[in-house]
Nucleic acid binder design. Structure first.
Length: 975
RNA sequence: GGACGAUUAGCUCAGCGGUAGAGCACUACAUUGACAUUGUAGGGGUCACUGGUUCAAUCCCAGUAUCGUCCACCA
């Protein structure tokens, strides 16, 4: 006999061990011979990670699919593994060192990397243990790590990365170059576009004068739309607006729009950057380009090619030198020659118009000596101060509307004096780029990096989805994918970190590099005796993640696993890594995995995008907000199965999951319900674990529940196949609680209490069979409790539940369904009438069937014990007319009475019948209206017309009976 | 600036051309019988708004409003 309560805490570890001991989740375990493969590669959690609700959701859904397919007998592999997560891991370990008062740079690179390996060995398994607690049925023996066992060069996981790099390089799809990249000054590394978050911040825009060289002047004319002159003055400067004054030091030109007439007179002339020691002020040319917007600011833009992406393009187009101003920490450069010397050098360049090669330019340090080494924001303040004090800021009255609401409020109210002049500093909302990990402002920086030609790789990846070889679920995400892939930029794959796959390129002293799988290969290319040094950089973490669907299966070796499980079946992930990961797996998979005809093979057939978990208010869960719900704490409190079931039933397509702990409690109750249903079965000697052929059942009740079971199983199956987890869980829930527990078990009670031994025997067998099927049906959602019930309710089982057969519909008996549904309706109607007429639940009432037809009599015959018990009926009689003083209900076209003179509240009965009648009349009016409408009859499908006709007939019949009932009650009350 | 999604019961959400559903919450009743982590019954909705298509619209189309998310952005 089961314990009174399900104790998740003691059951879960025991069941987990049973699975483990049986190797139940090994690739192909439980598969039927020649079964189709089914493979999911887990989105590898960060080695630093610990389980959060998003993991819990995604892995629960993957586990549901995996367990379901395994029970179907497919050849299943759920491939687990972890990601080395370059920046994130380095960050965690550095933080740990900081606690000991140490820094990364206190160690050599080798020592530091070793520390990370130590750390991984020590606590890297945390998240896997957490996933196991969740019940994740991965083949844990196949666990992989993106860096391999120990990061050794000959480790297959490392080899895969090296081979991909080398092959792509040799194909010209990876190249090296000096480009403007997003630079993270905190981690001192380049990052990709995707790792930059744009955050709207309150910024400022300063307006400065760039004086024309040699005191030149020009006529500055502004016109309105009609061409009327609104301003005409002689200027000896050009006005520039900037949000980043500190970058003025690296300006290479001032650009105006090609058609901007205001500046036409001075195009080609030189102007002076108004900062730095006067004697070394640099002159830069005024050029034209399509980029400046004449309507924004002054229409003139300073061009700082090394610190702004737009400027970079302009500078490249116009061969303008790009002067790098900052070091890796985004402090103003302190290296190189003294300012006087380099400034003079830059001056020559500007005058000559011949820009030297990029390395020569990069060596020039244009930071004035007093600003060298300053943080970029300190430098900004100084630059502003210097320019302003020199009188080169654009000055406006305090009332100028561009100064924003604060300044405008200071305007004199009584139109008196003209306000003082103040520097024009506009407040403006701007998007500021932040590093997604470091949370510091990203600096565009001109550096040497490795790039991957994503555009070329994206083309087949785009076609695969366009042509349906890989499908997104929900489909709407395909647009997101297309949009990004169609506008894809070169992918910066190098990182200036210590933790990661080191780039397989070796440099000689001249700076020439050789790309090869191993140093020996590079040496061979360079020639003997040439001193080589390996590139210090590592690869972007996502570079190795992109290989996950085939590297985990053994590629570049042609392993059995690779042959069997690639392409994988479905990838389940969150939308926010479609770009980071999904798109790149598509690119790499298609490029490196080819069929016999040389056509690329997609890494997965389906990409299921799961919803995001938010808190009950719809806020994203985050540590900083403190609104996170910890999945393991939740599992401790309610049981893992309750959490899993909640996540599944809330996982709707196309909408986020707002998780309210109350819901979890609700589904914990569902588990308890099933547990107790099993206890009830045990108390009544129900037999589980037997071979029972449902087709042999004869009693309507049994055939009905088998019919309902089949329908539920079909519904769950269909929903799972379509990744509609909420529908699947909901169908199972309704069947178990509302059909099996509420009705079937209740209807069994009179059978078990009766003395028809044959009926009892079949009822026991069927109930046992249904319970076994329920365990199976719920197993993917609630693996622990169902496995426990499966084992506890039978002395011996042939298999673990996780390898049992998935339920299929075996009985479909319309007649039995009709019979029991009539019974359910009758009982419900009687209960409802009793309740509304305030008949005490304890009171047993007599039932009189007036003018009952043969079918009705037969139904009463069959079901009288159930009716008596469930509706609390003391007797059932048949009569030719309705007795006086009776409550009356209409079920199946028959009037059924409860003669309860003296006990029935007739006012209540009248209002009940009136309400009933009103509803019926409304139905009649609607159906009648439709059927009287010629257009409806002419256009509506026959089935709909018939449905309305049937409804009308039924309601008219009901109306007659209910009206008659009402009439009788009224006359009885009067009489 | 572009794109996508949402708007249905008090709350959280399903549904989606053919008479509006669930869970929670709420109300009333039931107490030793598998289960109070329960049972029975009940109340509660112009399906955001405005047009259009249709015999028929919560559902399809167009527009509006509000909210959310993503992408791209102006020095």
């Amino acid at each position: 006999m089961l314990d009174k309560n399900y104790d998740a805490k003691s059951v879960e570890p025991r069941i987990a061990k049973a699975w483990d001991d049986a190797n139940a989740f090994a690739a192909g375990a439980g598969a039927k011979p020649d079964a189709d493969p089914f493979c999911i590669v887990i989105p590898p959690p960060n080695v630093t990670g610990s389980l959060h609700m998003g993991h819990a959701l995604n892995n629960t859904l993957q586990d549901i699919l995996t367990r379901y397919k395994r029970m179907l007998g497919q050849n299943v592999l759920w491939q687990p593994g972890m990601d080395h997560a370059g920046i994130a891991t380095q960050m965690v370990v550095e933080r740990k060192l900081a606690e000991e008062g140490k820094r990364r740079t206190d160690f050599t690179r080798e020592e530091f990397v070793e520390k990370i390996w130590e750390w991984k060995a020590q606590s890297g398994g945390t998240i896997f243990n957490q996933l196991k607690r969740l019940g994740a049925s991965c083949d844990w023996s196949r666990e992989k790590f993106t860096m391999g066992e120990k990061g050794e060069a000959d480790d297959p996981m490392v080899q895969a990365v090296m081979k991909v790099f080398v092959d792509l390089y040799n194909e010209g799809l990876i190249y090296r170059g000096k480009r403007l990249v997003n630079w993270d000054p905190h981690f001192e590394t380049a990052i990709s576009d995707l790792e930059v978050e744009n955050v709207e911040t309150e910024g400022h825009m300063w307006h400065f004068k760039y004086p024309l060289a040699d005191g030149a002047t020009y006529e500055y004319v502004e016109k309105d739309e009609d061409g009327t002159v609104t301003l005409r003055e002689t200027r000896d400067y050009i006005s520039i607006a900037t949000t980043r004054p500190e970058t003025m030091l690296g300006d290479g030109a001032v650009a105006v729009h090609t058609d901007d007439e205001r500046y036409a007179p001075i195009v080609g002339k030189l102007c002076e950057i108004p900062v730095g020691p006067k004697e070394h002020r640099r002159l830069i040319p005024i050029i034209t380009d399509e980029y400046p917007d004449p309507d924004f600011g002054s229409g003139a833009v300073k061009i700082t090619g090394a610190h702004d992406f737009n400027d970079y393009m302009v500078a490249k187009r116009n061969n303008i030198p790009m002067y790098r101003l900052m070091d890796t920490k985004a402090a103003m450069r302190a290296d190189g020659a003294p300012y006087a010397q380099d400034a003079a050098r830059a001056m020559e360049i500007a005058k000559s118009g011949n820009t030297p090669d990029e390395n020569t330019v990069d060596a020039i340090n244009l930071i004035p000596d007093d600003l060298r080494g300053l943080d970029r924001y300190e430098a900004r303040e100084k630059v502003i101060e210097q320019i302003t004090s020199e009188g080169l800021a654009i000055m406006v009255p305090e009332t100028d509307p561009r100064l924003g609401p604060v300044k405008a409020a200071l305007a004199p109210e009584e139109g008196g004096e003209v306000s003082a002049l103040v520097p024009l500093v506009e407040k403006n909302k701007m998007q500021q780029p932040y590093g997604d990990r470091s949370k510091v402002v990203i600096e565009p920086m001109l550096t040497d990096q490795w790039f991957c030609d994503a555009e070329t790789l994206a083309k087949p990846a785009l076609a695969s989805v366009k042509e349906g070889r890989t499908e997104f679920v929900p489909k709407s995400w395909e647009n997101t994918y297309f949009n990004w892939m169609e506008n894809i930029q070169p992918w910066c794959i190098s990182r200036q970190l210590w933790w990661g796959h080191r780039i397989p390129a070796w440099f000689d002293d001249a700076g020439k590099f050789y790309v090869a799988m191993h140093e020996a290969g590079a040496q061979a290319q360079a020639g003997e005796g040439v001193a080589l040094k390996r590139d210090e950089d590592v690869l972007d973490t996502w570079f190795s993640s992109a290989l996950w669907p085939f590297s985990t299966l053994g590629w570049p070796k042609h392993t059995d696993a690779l042959n069997t499980y690639y392409p994988t079946t479905v990838l389940s992930t969150a939308f926010d890594i479609i770009f980071f990961w999904v798109a790149r797996m598509m690119m790499m998979g298609l490029h490196f995995m080819k069929d016999e005809d040389g056509r690329g093979i997609e890494p997965f057939k389906t990409v299921y995008i799961h919803p995001l978990v938010r808190d009950k208010l719809g806020q994203k869960m985050s540590k900083s907000k403190g609104n996170g719900i910890d999945p393991l704490e939740t599992a401790d409190e309610y049981g893992t199965d309750a959490l899993r079931f909640t996540l599944a039933i809330m996982a709707v397509q196309g909408r986020d999951v707002k998780l309210d702990p109350q819901r979890i409690a609700g589904y914990r109750n569902f588990g308890t319900k099933l547990w107790n249903a099993t206890r009830f079965a045990q108390m009544n000697d129900v037999v589980t674990g037997e071979d029972f052929d449902p087709a042999t059942a004869t009693y309507p009740l049994n055939r009905w529940i088998l019919t309902e079971l089949g329908r539920a199983a079909a519904e769950v199956t269909d929903a799972l196949e379509r990744y509609r987890f909420n529908d699947a869980a909901g169908a199972a829930y309704r069947f178990v609680w509302n059909t099996f527990c509420d009705w079937h078990l209740e209807l069994l009670k009179p059978v078990f209490n009766g003395d028809d031994e044959a009926a009892k025997a079949e009822a026991r067998a069927v109930a046992g069979y249904v319970l076994d099927q329920i365990y199976a049906l719920l197993h993917p959602f609630m693996p622990f409790m169902t496995e426990e019930l499966w084992q506890q309710t039978a002395a011996k089982r042939d298999t673990l539940l996780c390898h049992a057969d998935w339920p299929v519909a075996e009985v479909n008996d319309e007649a039995a369904a009709h019979s029991i549904n009539w019974l359910i309706e009758l009982v419900s109607e009687i209960r409802s009438a009793r309740s509304e007429m305030n008949i005490k639940p304890s009171l047993m009432v007599p039932l009189v069937v007036a003018n009952g037809d043969n079918e009705t009599r037969a139904l009463f015959d069959t079901h009288s014990p159930a009716i008596e018990r469930l509706a609390r009926v003391e007797s059932i009689a048949f009569a030719d007319s309705v007795p006086d003083g009776a409550a009356q209900i209409v079920v199946g076209g028959q009037t059924i009475c409860m003669p309860l003179a003296g006990l029935v509240d007739f006012d209540a009965e009248i209002s009940r019948l009136e309400k009933d009648l009103k509803g019926i009349e409304k139905d009649i009016a609607q159906a009648q209206g439709k059927l009287n409408n010629e257009k409806f009859v002419a256009n509506a499908p026959q089935a709909v017309i018939e449905e309305n006709q049937a409804r009308l007939a039924d309601r008219q019949d009901r109306k007659a009976k209910v009206s008659a009932a009402l009439k009788r009650v009224r006359s009885f009350q009067r009489g």
